[in-house]
């Protein structure tokens, strides 16, 4: 079913690319920036669990491994972004790039070069996490800081640089927390049913901790920008807190933080499988909304059928691939 959704989504978004290329590029970038959190967030959780151990990781391992294994999907998925580079990014447009203060960093050759380096590192780490025995911890300890750094710079390139004036030092940490939360939510949806009773409560606590961490970082970025009120930073929020996007902003506070937080602190809910799965689904949907809210205002685009098709196509293909790979020897060997 996930494959069907994904294939239909990709087909419809392909149609959208012909009818309205700009909508497609921004919609695809939003979908990609959400989906990338799945394999990379799963990978980081796998590496963390190698170092810390714990029941939560044992319960999640098959789903995290399946999520990590979908990373090669990034290779075809990044193509529309590379083709649409001048549409998406001011720094990729020859007429605007020379006027930017940070064009020494934001330029097409450097972007492609470092992007390739990130990709090689991620694929290597994913292969390490999938093929080596969980007892092997050394590479995990070295890989985690590298993953954190490369993810930070990759997400700065992909989404923060849409507004070349916006400059937030917590951005990578914030998006990283969001990515891990997204990957965890997607793993909890099936794990809430398959995990042992005690482990379900552990998953609830972990989900709670990540919701709080994400909300904390997000609020700190917002508060500092609000307090300082500098045009280049506040403008980023201005675009995302006016018109219809104000609703998306409020919805995130309510459904990406307040409601899941209020539910997850109740011990009874932490043990209820159905409730846990429902909360995880809600968090995953909110992550998609968050991706639109981050990316689309940069292109002055609302959420339309093309954007919806891109999101469904990307996440559907990701889910379909994860489900298919989940049954293979690749994922099953170290479960």
């Amino acid at each position: 079913m996930a494959w069907a959704l994904g294939v239909v989504g990709v087909a419809v978004s392909g149609l959208g690319a012909f009818l309205h290329a700009r909508a497609f590029y921004f919609g695809w970038l939003a979908a990609l920036s959400v989906w990338i959190g799945w394999p990379l967030g799963s990978l980081s959780l796998l590496l963390i669990h190698r170092l810390t151990g714990g029941r939560w990781g044992d319960a999640l391992r098959p789903y995290l491994r399946a999520g990590t294994a979908t990373l090669p999907l990034l290779l075809p998925a990044i193509l529309p972004v590379l083709i649409g580079l001048p549409v998406l990014y001011a720094w990729a447009r020859p007429e605007q790039a020379p006027h930017l203060a940070n064009s020494f960093y934001l330029n097409v050759p450097f972007f492609l070069g470092r992007g390739a380096a990130y990709l090689i590192l991620w694929l290597g780490l994913a292969a390490f996490a999938l093929f080596t025995s969980p007892a092997n911890t050394r590479v995990a300890a070295i890989g985690l800081p590298l993953l954190a750094l490369t993810f930070t710079f990759a997400i700065i390139d992909l989404t923060m640089s849409l507004d070349p004036a916006f400059n937030s030092s917590v951005y990578g940490m914030l998006q990283g927390a969001g990515a891990v939360l997204f990957a965890l939510s997607l793993a909890v949806v099936p794990a809430a049913w398959t995990a042992k009773r005690d482990a379900v409560a552990d998953l609830g606590k972990l989900l709670l901790a990540l919701v709080v961490l994400w909300a904390y970082l997000d609020f700190m970025q917002f508060l500092i920008v609000w307090e300082s009120n500098l045009s280049h930073d506040a403008g980023w929020y201005q675009a995302r807190m006016s018109g219809g996007w104000a609703w998306a902003f409020t919805a995130q506070a309510a459904f990406h933080f307040a409601l899941p937080f209020g539910l997850l602190i109740v011990p009874g809910i932490q043990r209820n499988r159905a409730a846990m799965a429902a909360i995880a689904v809600l968090l995953a949907f909110m992550a998609a909304l968050r991706g639109w809210w981050t990316v689309l205002p940069a292109g002055q685009r609302p959420v339309g059928w093309i954007e919806l098709a891109c999101m469904c196509g990307m996440l559907g293909c990701g889910a379909g691939l994860a489900a298919s790979l989940g049954r293979t020897q690749l994922v099953q060997r170290h479960v």
Binding site: F219, F222, L223, W226, E227, N229
Partner: peptide
Amino acid sequence: VGGRPDFSWPPFIV
């Protein structure tokens, strides 16, 4: 204070 609204809810949260 520098044009901030009287109802400055973000700082109040802290």
